[in-house]
């Protein structure tokens, strides 16, 4: 299942950067999709797409740095783990993140992610945060190779 995308990354026709993100519509919640040359880059962009559900990432400065690790049996479940780990960090630190660096290792036991996220405490006036993300769901969950790169997507509950 891959609903039609609504572009919020580069405008149609513009050259795509190596990694980019978009939202796809869901009636009550929001779909987040990251595109990247590598699996890790797609995960970075999916995280950026999630921040954009809440606020404009360009308004989020980078005053704090958080380390995240998680693991899962497969890349799709790892995406949900990754986004949920960020939801937890955002909720407990009352922060937003706008830059992500991800590495992913895969072996017979599953996939493991190590990452850093940089951002700052929520500033309601400057960020105008629209809505909290409650968690990543398994709806429209898909991690796959596409067009020479990777996509990583799911619906997040808001």
């Amino acid at each position: 299942m891959q609903p039609d995308a609504q572009e919020t990354g580069p405008p149609p026709g513009a050259a795509r950067p190596p990694g980019w993100w978009e939202h796809f519509p869901h009636q009550a919640d929001m779909g987040v999709r990251g595109h990247g040359a590598t699996l890790a880059a797609a995960f970075e962009q999916a995280a950026l797409a999630m921040t954009a559900v809440i606020a404009d990432p360009a308004r989020v400065r980078q005053n704090i740095k958080v380390s995240v690790t998680c693991a899962a049996p497969d890349p799709e479940l790892l995406l949900a783990e990754w986004l949920n780990a960020l939801v937890f960090e955002m909720a407990t630190r009352r922060a937003l993140f706008s830059t992500f660096r991800v590495t992913i290792d895969q072996d017979a036991a599953g996939v493991r992610l190590k990452a850093t996220a940089r951002g700052e405490a929520v500033d309601p006036v400057r960020h105008q945060p629209a809505v909290e993300v409650k968690g990543a769901t398994y709806t429209a969950l898909r991690v796959a190779r596409q067009g020479g790169g990777w996509i990583a997507q799911c619906v997040v509950d808001v």
């Binding site: 783990e81 939801v87 937890f88 409650k134 968690g135 990543a136 769901t137 398994y138």
Partner: peptide, 14 residues
């Protein structure tokens, strides 16, 4: 509540 949902959705899938 959000985290309970997250925790058990994961456990139920697994």
């Amino acid at each position: 509540g959000h985290q309970i949902g997250t925790d058990y959705l994961r456990e139920m899938v697994m």
